[in-house]
């Protein structure tokens, strides 16, 4: 009896909550039937073991009741997932090693083991973040198992597109990787109340990031999802351009708010926005001077905003071209 309940308990660990009780009741009843059919008592342990072995391993039995979607990332998304992981990890390792080397230039001390440990320590959390993003994307795309699928129609395949219309895989992956790293830094900011660098030395609290934290995270996630969808489609279409433009628009709004916030902070603190502070970047970072950090953020954000605006302008131009071409075709067709 105890063995049967232990077996059912093990099966229940793998069952979906919705059907759990019903499936367990049916299995319990079937196990008793099996013993009764062979004139075996419930306290005959050898007979119970044989009955449970006949039924199969708990995980396999439960899996047979599942909907065969026991994965976090579908095979269709896996190639993109692998590319993003490799790129993000490469950038993270290179950046962190580079920063550690830069930091060691002034004080001549570089603890190799600590540096490597610092780099490796961040990788699992980043990996988890990427998995969570792809899992979320997959939830948007999955269709129900019993929904009738439309037959494949080759006539609906996209037209052959010129190379200029194909999505640049490298640039798209780079954009995704940059956003994932930004998200990782934001998570660190959220956990510690600021940013750390050089193997945990140096701490910088940014009040403007704190103020707009939720907005920055949302904009970052929106951009990652849109970039992934564009990468997945592989071809620039009107829909992907509009989505990309909308995501860029959101980024520009957020960047504008952040730039304004940093500018206001610097003015209030008595530091004009000048490049003079940046020339003393290394020393002042080590001194934990907040003004230099805020100044670096101000220029970094301005630089980023410039690129986002140029990119959005280019996308808008391509969209305009596409729409004009479509309208011309309509006119020709009507004539």
């Amino acid at each position: 009896m105890d063995l049967i309940e232990r077996y059912l308990g093990a099966v229940s660990n793998y069952l979906p909550a919705k059907q759990r009780n019903d499936i367990l009741a049916e299995l319990r009843s079937s196990i008793y039937d099996s013993l009764e059919r062979n004139d075996q008592a419930l306290d005959d342990q050898a007979a119970v073991v044989a009955a449970l072995q006949a039924l199969g391993e708990p995980a396999k039995v439960a899996a047979a009741y599942g909907n065969n979607r026991q994965y976090l990332i579908s095979p269709a998304l896996f190639p993109q997932f692998r590319s993003v992981v490799l790129l993000v990890f490469s950038i993270m390792i290179a950046t962190q090693l580079g920063l550690a080397l830069l930091g060691s230039l002034g004080n001549q001390r570089l603890n190799i083991i600590n540096t490597i440990w610092g780099v490796i320590g961040n990788l699992p959390a980043t990996f988890g973040l990427i998995v969570a993003i792809f899992w979320g994307l997959q939830q948007l795309e999955v269709d129900t198992e019993f929904e009738p699928k439309k037959p494949f129609d080759p006539r609906k395949l996209p037209a052959i597109t010129p190379a200029s219309e194909k999505v640049g895989r490298g640039s798209q992956l780079f954009g995704i990787a940059a956003q994932v790293i930004l998200l990782g830094w934001l998570m660190q900011f959220q956990a510690e109340g600021g940013f750390r660098w050089f193997s945990g030395q140096g701490f910088f609290e940014n009040p403007v990031i704190s103020q707009y934290f939720a907005l920055v995270v949302v904009a970052s996630i929106v951009n990652i999802v849109v970039d992934l969808v564009v990468l997945w489609r592989g071809v620039w279409q009107t829909s992907t351009r509009i989505a990309s433009l909308a995501a860029s628009g959101l980024s520009i709004i957020v960047l504008f708010l952040l730039i304004q916030g940093h500018s206001a902070w610097l003015v209030n603190a008595g530091y004009p926005n000048s490049l003079i502070e940046l020339s003393k970047l290394g020393t002042m970072i080590r001194e934990n001077n907040m003004a230099i950090g805020m100044s670096a953020f101000y220029y970094g954000l301005t630089f980023t905003a410039f690129f986002v605006i140029v990119d959005a302008g280019y996308t808008a131009y391509k969209l305009y071209q596409e729409r004009s071409r479509a309208q011309q075709n309509e006119v020709v067709a009507t004539a």
Binding site: E26, L27, S30, A54, L55, G56, V61, A64, Y65
Partner: peptide, 8 residues
């Protein structure tokens, strides 16, 4: 037929 196959 196995029970583990038939019930599901």
């Amino acid at each position: 037929i196995d029970q583990g196959t038939l019930y599901p």
